[in-house]
Amino acid sequence: MSGPQTPMAHRGTKLMRTWPLLTPVVFLLLVWSIVPLLMTLWFSFQRYNLVDPTITGFAGFDNYKFLLEDPAMLAAIFNEVVLVGSVLAITIVFGVAFAILFDQEFWGRSIARLFVIAPFFVMPTVSALIWKNLLMNPVSGVFAWITTKLGFGAIDWFTNYPMAGIVIIVAWQWIPFATLILLTAMQSLDREQMEAARMDAARGPQLLRFVIMPHLARPISILLMIETIFLLAIFAEIFITTSGGPGDATTTLTYLIYLRALVNFDVGGASAGGVLAIILANIMAFFLVRTIARNVNI
């Protein structure tokens, strides 16, 4: 009779014992995440420009209206989607390929693994500088040297293909992460299942399609989600290489918010951009979580 009550009572006393210890940290985290969010929301409805402190007061939806009517905004969302989408696609393709490759036994595998992971440890700013000045520079870059030697002439990446250049840099930084996650997933693939597939005459592409990809579906969806969160906030690479240009060819939403707030000093408009970014991120997260939930039921 007291059966169902006991665990509850027990839970109650446990809560009583633990809440004094838990409360400070929960409170701190809550303040840490909620206060900036609320401030952003508040500012997004204010007339607030650092250049002219006399402009104050409630703006209603003017900031949003102004932002949504701005052609730069649409372009920024488009650029954001192109950047995130391409980097996701490239990292997953290379991640799967590297995971399968480094799952094999070969001489020098541990060193090769180290090298493939290494780009992840390079700071975004540093890697952007290396790519910009040492590799992709049309005059002194390695790529230009190679292509001129081969007789194709140099490519001025950040003038002619600015978005492609940034995608390459960011993908280079994130392939290691994808490889790492997918390699651990590959190693948990049942060896007997691979052998059964071999006895069933599954080879190369069929093995990939029927055994490896279904096994990697879940880690890939998790990877998509984690990478999306980080890629939406890409800033340093753009700032260092193209500063959002030429024109607005590489101005993403994140970069647009930076331009509004710290170049135009329009805090209200930037905050509105921030809120829109949060909404966009949540929409994407919603779809991703749904994909994952579906895949988890394998």
Partner: peptide, 18 residues
């Protein structure tokens, strides 16, 4: 293995989960 005309039953069954 697939051309030897043999079929194997594995200890862990090794069924394709999906």
């Amino acid at each position: 293995p697939d051309r030897r005309g043999l079929a194997m039953v594995f200890q862990s069954y090794a069924l394709y989960p999906h």
